[in-house]
Design a protein around this nucleic acid. Structure first.
Length: 510
RNA sequence: GCCCCUGUCGUCUAGCCCGGCCUAGGACAUCGCCCUUUCAAGGCGGCAACACGGGUUCGAAUCCCGUCGGGGGCGCCA
């Protein structure tokens, strides 16, 4: 019995536990659900699975919602937006679970289990040691409901277990994996309600998915072995089965489960780094999926129209930062200039390069600078570092490469010539620079790298950076503007560098 | 240990279901060249894979069996 006849709207859900920051694996699951819903005009439900009271925290729920929204996902039903099948927080659905558990109890499909956790643990270990599957013995299976209730009333604690067939096969057709089957002999009666009265995961998901009319359960592969237990529950209630799709895991570079030591793994971290949400979604979508045509840089809208669950790969994927950052660069390029500035500003502020109030001229200049310096940047957090090319000028702290460049005879000649030619100047711009370098070239015969390289070092105190025809106009204008850290003009730089090197313009002794 | 899933370049993958079009395609990374006053970007090109062993077949990356590797699960966690 499947619910998914063509007339029904597709209803999918993302059901995270608020136990920490949302990581890329979960985000990918959320994205796939969302993509399918949006493509098919279906409904995307957000449900919070907070029945683990020890680990769940309200602020995690807020973070989670914030992260999902930042990614660009939205939901039609959820704890913050409501919906006709609410509440959408499991902690607020306890009465529903209780009621359904009672139903199973009355129908003889479930029973109270009085075994202590210590006993169970011991049996489990014994089974494992003997190489058997640790299946619950079924000791409490035949305690009559009346007797169980009496014991409960006298103060004993009990969990509730689902009574499942002792043998047989549970088979289901997974949308990404095909036919999957499990042997019931290897599955014990699962606990559906803990002795604390809280529902167990396998129980609450099924109740919620069924009551919320979820048609497609798309989740991580780590849930695949829960699926038979859940199917048994659907059957106990005589509910139609949803379609299942189990996504492979996302791994770290060393092919182990992605964790902190692999670098950034939470959505929140990527946001802070200055990775664009559309780039992250683009990358996440390519973890296990690929479009029929080769195009790889895709917007969210394109992902929505191209996505296809049947093209999802079955093998686990390793998270590749290089490719993510490459995609991010591509998406950054697509941004309009004003957006680039807007996104860059917080990073520049944090680095103390700009203040809170920016004048129009400064803003204009910054926009230009961001445009130029963003070239080849993986993520926005790298921008302040790039800006130091303009804001920091330290001829005393040259790196090895720069030192090598200026420590040749011809370099000395070039530098001395520039110092002399600029010594009387009070105005400078790129045209002047071009004219002077032309003269130097003619007078000394030095050209190409040998000419420009030393000049670059003199003006930037670095061996590499922006092209000088872009750099000089930028610092000349920047030097006239107001920034917390003033920008040195070309002439200031040349003179500072010269005095450090002990180059004095002829006819003008110290 | 048992169960389930999985195995194409270093990485993400196309191809696999419906054997020949595969001398296995693309992208990232890497290497080289070009462009360029440097770097980057861009352009061009190179290196690089069907885990292994058996079948089936005229023919196998594609079908079957086995081995090995990887992952997940075996909770009163989700």
């Amino acid at each position: 019995m499947t619910r998914n006849d063509k007339t029904d709207k597709i209803r999918v859900r993302f059901a995270p536990s608020p136990t920490g920051f949302i990581h890329v694996g979960n985000a990918r699951t959320a994205l796939f659900n969302w993509l399918l819903a949006r493509q098919k005009g279906g409904v995307f439900v957000l449900r919070i699975e907070d029945t683990d009271l020890e680990r769940s925290k309200p602020e995690y729920e807020r973070n989670l919602i914030e992260d999902l929204r930042w990614l660009g996902l939205d939901w039609d039903e959820g704890p913050d937006v409501g919906g006709e099948f609410g509440p959408y927080r499991q902690s607020e659905r306890l009465a529903i679970y209780h009621q359904h558990a009672q139903k199973l109890l009355e129908a003889g499909q479930a029973y109270y289990c009085f075994c202590s956790q210590e006993e169970l643990e011991r049996e489990r270990e014994e089974a494992l040691a003997k190489g058997r599957s640790p299946v619950y013995s079924g000791r409490c299976r035949n305690i009559p409901l009346e007797e169980a209730r009496r014991r409960l009333n006298s103060g004993q604690q009990a969990a509730i277990r689902l009574k499942i067939p002792e043998e047989g096969l549970v088979r289901f057709s997974d949308l990404v994996r095909g036919e999957v089957e499990f042997d019931l002999k290897l599955i014990g009666d699962p606990i559906i309600v803990r002795s604390t009265g809280m529902p167990a995961y396998n129980f609450s998901v099924v109740i919620d998915d069924a009551l919320m009319h979820i048609t497609h359960v798309i989740r991580g592969e780590d849930h695949i072995s829960n699926t038979p237990r859940q199917i048994l529950l659907y059957q106990a209630f005589d509910w139609p089965l949803p379609v299942f799709a189990h996504l492979s895991m996302v791994m770290g570079q060393d092919n182990t489960r992605l964790s902190k030591r692999h670098g950034a793994t939470s959505i929140d971290q990527f946001r802070r780094e200055g990775v664009l949400p559309q780039a992250l979604c683009n990358y996440l979508a390519f973890l296990g999926w690929s479009p029929p045509e080769g195009k790889e840089v895709l917007t969210l809208e394109e992902l929505v129209s191209l996505f296809d669950l049947s093209r999802v790969n079955r093998a686990a994927a390793i998270f590749d930062y290089d490719k993510l950052y490459w995609l991010n660069r591509q998406h950054i390029k697509l941004l309009p200039r004003s957006k680039k500035l807007e996104l860059a500003l917080p990073y520049l502020r944090e680095a103390g390069l700009v203040g809170d109030n920016i004048g129009p001229a400064e803003e204009q200049w910054l926009s230009q600078a961001v445009e130029l310096l963003l070239e080849g940047v993986d993520k926005f957090s790298e921008l302040p570092q790039k800006f130091s090319l303009i804001f920091d000028f330290n001829p005393e702290a040259l790196d090895e490469e720069a030192k090598v460049i200026i420590n040749t005879e011809s370099a000395r000649k070039v530098l001395k010539a520039l110092v002399e030619k600029t010594s009387a100047l009070s105005d400078f711009n790129y045209e002047v620079f071009a004219r002077l370098t032309g003269e130097i070239k003619k007078e000394t015969g030095i050209k190409g790298r040998d000419l420009y390289h030393p000049l670059r070092v003199m003006l930037t105190a670095r061996a590499s950076g922006l092209e000088l025809d872009k750099f000089i106009p930028l610092i000349e204008e920047g030097a006239r503007l107001k920034f917390p850290r003033p920008i040195k003009s070309s002439l200031e730089r040349i003179r500072e560098f010269a005095s450090l090197l002990g180059i004095e313009p002829a006819g003008k002794p110290a």
